[in-house]
Nucleic acid binder design. Sequence first.
DNA 1: TCTGGGGTCCTAGGACCC
DNA 2: TCTGGGGTCCTAGGACCC
Length: 420
Amino acid sequence: MYCLVDAVAFYASAEKVFDPAIRSKPVVVLTNNDGCICAICPIARRLNIPKFQPYFKVKHLLAKHKVVIRSSNYELYADLSDKMMNVISRFCDTQHVYSIDEAFLQFNGFTPLINDWHKYGQLIRRTVWRETKLPVGVGFGPTPTLAKAANHAAKKLNGFNGVAVIDSEHARQYILAAMDVADVWGVGKRLAKKLKLLNINSALDLAKQTPQRMKRLFSVVLERTVNELNGIVCLNWDDVRQDKREIFSTRSFGERLTDPVALKTALINHSIIVARKLRQQRSLTKRLLLFVASSPHESHYYKKSLVYELPVSSADSRVFAKAISEIFTQLYQHNVRFYKCGMGALELSSQQFQQPDLFAPSQDNIKLMECLDSINKRYGYDTLTLASQQQSQAWHMKRAFLSPQYTTRWQHLPKISCDL
DNA sequence: TCTGGGGTCCTAGGACCC
DNA sequence: TCTGGGGTCCTAGGACCC
C-alpha cells in the first residue's frame, strides 16, 4: 500500500501559519519577481482566481476581492516543509519526499497499529495540523499513481473529508470515473487533449486501455501510467529517488540588466548553486550549459547559450567560475536588456568513478569544497564565497509582498503582546 | 512606466560521418 | 518510371511537474 500526503495550497497555507489574522481571508502567493500567481488558498480559489496568470493582469481582480498577496518566501516554506515531513515520517518506516509539499509513504510489511486506512489517514491529518498548522490531504492506493489519484479525490470530491482510500475494485472505479484524464499524474494538458480525441475522457477510460496500444500511440511513460492505474506497480522506489541527470539554476532578474559585471556575477552565483547541488548528490559534470537572454516579450529577443566542455569532470565551484570568466565575452552583447540567465550541468557522472586525465590533472579539491559546504550549511550560504561572487544588489529579486522570515531570522520572530 | 516561474527529462530533427 | 543507409551526436523546444 502506498500513501501520498500533500499540503493544500502549500505556499498559501504556509503564509497563514504565523499570521492567523489572514487564515480566514483569500490569500495568493506570487512566483519569483512577483511574476505570476503560483499558489491560491481554497478561499481565493472560490473567487475563481486563475493560477499561473501574470500578476499584473489579475491585479484588479485581486484588489476587487481584497485578496491578500504575498511574494514567495522560500526560507519560510523550506523550514515548514522540513517540519511537516518530520511529522509525516513518524507514520511509516519508508518515506520518500517527492517535492517541497508532498511525500509518499510505502507500507510493505509495515502495518500500522490502527488497522483502518481511513482512520490512519485522519490521524495523519490531525497530527500534521496540530503540530504545524498546515492542512494536508491524504490518499491511499496500491500504486503511487493510484495513491496520487486518491489524494486528488480526497481534496476535490465531496464526502471524503481530506482522506480517500483505494482498497477495493469498487473504490478504484468510483474514484477514477470521477477524475478527468488531465488530472492523472503524468498526463498533462497536451496529452489530455489528444486522449480526449480518442474519447478517453476520464481516468477510468484511460485505465481501460491496453498498455501496449498506449505505448504504440504515445510513449512508454503512458504505458506505465495505464499499468499503475490498474494496480501494477511500475514506479518503484529506486526509480523515484534516482540521481538527477542534469541540474540547473536559472532565474529572471528583478530589473533588466545591462551591466556586464552584474550579469557575469549572476552567472557565477548560479554556478555556485549548481556546484553545491552536484556535490549533494555526489556527482560531477563534464559540460556546463550557460545562457543569457532578454525578455521573450521584447521586440528584439536575444538569447545566447554556450556549452563549455571541462577537461575533467568537476563539481568545484572555482573551476566553474573560471570557465564562466573565459567565455563570458561570447555571451554578452551591448545594448541588450538582460532578463534572465542561468547555468546547467549536463552529462553527470558519479564522484566515485571519476576518470582523471593523465596530462591535465584535476583542479578539483573535493575536501576544500566539502569544508566550504559544511561551514556554509551551518552559518548560511553567504558565509564563505568566492571573490568573484561579490554581492551585487543589481540583480536581486523583486519581492514586494514578502512576509517575515519567522523561522530563520531572530529579528523576525513573531511577537505576541498581551494586555494584562 | 512596465511588468510574464523554475526544474528536469525526453524527443524530433538536423548535421555529420562512413 | 522511379528510386538512394545507418549510426552517432547535438540542440532546441516540447512536455510535464510543482
